[in-house]
Write a protein that binds this DNA or RNA. Structure first.
Length: 158
DNA sequence: GTTAGGG
DNA sequence: CCCTAAC
């Protein structure tokens, strides 16, 4: 038997794993302007760093996160970080309560954001107060068990 | 330049 | 991702 374990390196690089090639396609719009379309698919590593940065400094401090976690990334400005964070929030609110019996065709396309990351995002959003008042009201009166997430792996920030 | 919101 | 507005 051959024990050939595939070292699925999930982007072991930091953020410089991105190709140095600039994927910029200039498409002229009808309104009067050249729209520069970049194509920079956020990888898991990027998402993790973003979440870690928010967990360390807080949501809204994209400038600091960009200076520390994304210091080697000339692109990815404050706008990009905020955009990704919003996208993560949406995914963490619709993919967390599911993940049980959805259509799983054996394999996803290169893993679209693991639930592990989404769990961190949801907890962070709860801390930073980015949870919408909706969806949280799914409790039926009569549950004295204060079941809190067990993700409290923080030494104690804030 | 950054944050925040919308397309 | 890109653009706009306000700070």
């Amino acid at each position: 038997m051959k024990i050939v374990e595939l070292e699925n390196d999930i982007e072991v690089n930091d953020c410089s794993e991105d190709n140095s090639d600039d994927n910029v396609v200039t498409v002229p719009t009808q309104k009067g302007g050249m729209r520069r379309k970049h194509h920079r698919p956020w990888t898991i590593n990027e998402v993790v760093k973003l979440v870690e940065g928010v967990a360390r400094y807080g949501a809204g401090r994209w400038s600091e996160i960009k200076r520390l976690a994304f210091s080697s990334c000339p692109y990815r400005t404050s706008v990009d970080l905020k955009d990704k964070w919003r996208n993560l929030l949406k995914a963490s609110f619709v993919q967390l309560p599911a993940e049980k019996g959805i259509l799983n065709s054996r394999k996803q396309a290169s893993v679209p954001i693991p639930a592990a990351i989404l769990s961190r995002v949801r907890e962070l959003a709860d801390m930073q107060g980015q949870i919408p008042p909706v969806l949280s009201a799914c409790k039926s009166s009569g549950h004295s068990s204060s079941d809190r997430n067990v993700h409290e792996a923080r030494s104690g920030f804030l």
